[in-house]
């Protein structure tokens, strides 16, 4: 395997990590707000809070890691994407800032209020929508290069069916991933009313997820036929994704093995996300950035890989400790151990 592919695989793993844990976080915010509106907050909010409190900060890091790593491995991407994503990127940043800081203000500060819940719920939907434009732009057609200057065409982005189908997929996926995780978490906490409530959310968002993915495929076939044709070469990955989806749906429906069900959801998205990624190659941005040409100097590339491996030796034990103390600590999950 050559350096460019090692680099993009590492980065894609982090993007996938962000997809899962940020989805749980974003969806949780939406469900908190929704259950407050429907006066069911007493049922689910305790579960959501117990999970989110110790881990919220970690979520952002995955995103930054992906961005910094992407620029490190492929510096040319900074030039193209940096120019194109000024507006959507800035909007995502503003929303992330509001979300992160308000979460802390409410959680570590004194009290919660409705404005906070609203912001927390809504930003969770708008952030993925604006971040997903990065993926849309990568398909080409929204950036042109004229006389050495990169030009971004927002009108094309807003008028594109493909672009909206990606936004739709991003939002429903978040809600599905989040609901299936929280169902599992509630089950571990033996909080059965919450589990029932969250399970209905998971079931409700399952079908829209599949519908949205089909829509994205259809949109892609029209927007970027080259990529679509390459995706068909990896049809088995998308088929595996569908199988995992059906498996998880069955388990959640039958109310058993919620842990396995969530694992299947993770696999569902892993197959789809990596299938998308691998068929996207060799272009990082159609048709301007080819992975081979964009790769940084070899010495820097290997230095980054070395730093990454060294970093993993530090991070993996730390993450295991975090998970053992909070996520997989039955007593904490049930609310037996208080911190503050």
């Amino acid at each position: 395997m050559n350096l460019a592919y090692i680099g993009i695989t590492v980065l894609w793993l982090f993007a996938y990590g962000y997809l899962i844990i940020a989805s749980i976080d974003f969806g949780a915010g939406f469900f908190s707000y929704y259950s407050m509106l429907t006066r069911k907050e007493h049922v689910v909010n305790r579960i959501i809070e117990r999970y989110l409190s110790p881990v919220w900060e970690v979520t952002n890091v995955f995103l930054i890691f992906f961005i910094v790593g992407f620029i490190g491995f492929f510096p040319d991407t900074a030039y193209y994407y940096g120019t194109a994503l000024l507006i959507p990127g800035s909007i995502a940043l503003i929303l992330l800032t509001i979300r992160g800081s308000f979460y802390a203000f409410a959680n570590y500060g004194v009290r919660k209020n409705k404005i906070y819940m609203f912001l927390y719920g809504m930003t969770g939907l708008f952030i993925p929508a604006s971040l997903s434009t990065g993926l849309t732009i990568s398909e080409g057609g929204f950036i042109t290069k004229e006389a050495g200057t990169v030009l971004f065409h927002p009108d094309r982005l807003f008028g594109s069916l493909y672009s909206w189908s990606v936004v739709f997929l991003a939002i429903v996926s978040i809600l599905y991933i989040s609901a299936s995780f929280l169902t599992y978490y509630a089950d571990r906490a033996h909080d059965f009313p919450a589990r029932q409530q969250l399970r209905t959310y998971a079931l409700a968002w399952s079908m829209p997820t599949i519908l949205a993915s089909l829509l994205v495929f259809w949109g892609l076939s029209m927007h970027n036929p080259t990529h679509f044709a390459r995706a068909l070469d990896y049809a088995w990955m998308f088929a595996a994704s569908l199988v995992c989806f059906l498996g998880s749906l069955y388990l959640i429906w039958k109310q058993k093995k919620f842990g396995i069900a969530f694992l299947l959801v993770m696999f569902q998205f892993a197959f789809a996300f990596f299938g998308y990624g691998i068929s996207h190659l060799p272009y990082l941005l159609y048709p301007y950035i080819h992975i081979r040409d964009a790769l940084t100097h070899t010495s820097m590339g290997w230095a980054l890989v070395a730093a990454f491996i060294a970093g993993l030796f530090l991070l993996v034990p730390a993450i295991v400790l975090l998970l053992r103390l909070f996520l997989f600590n039955a007593e904490y999950v049930k609310g037996g151990k208080e911190g503050k």
Partner: peptide, 11 residues
Amino acid sequence: SLPLFMETFAF
């Protein structure tokens, strides 16, 4: 980009 990358790890 190396220290930038490592900064993310440290954080």
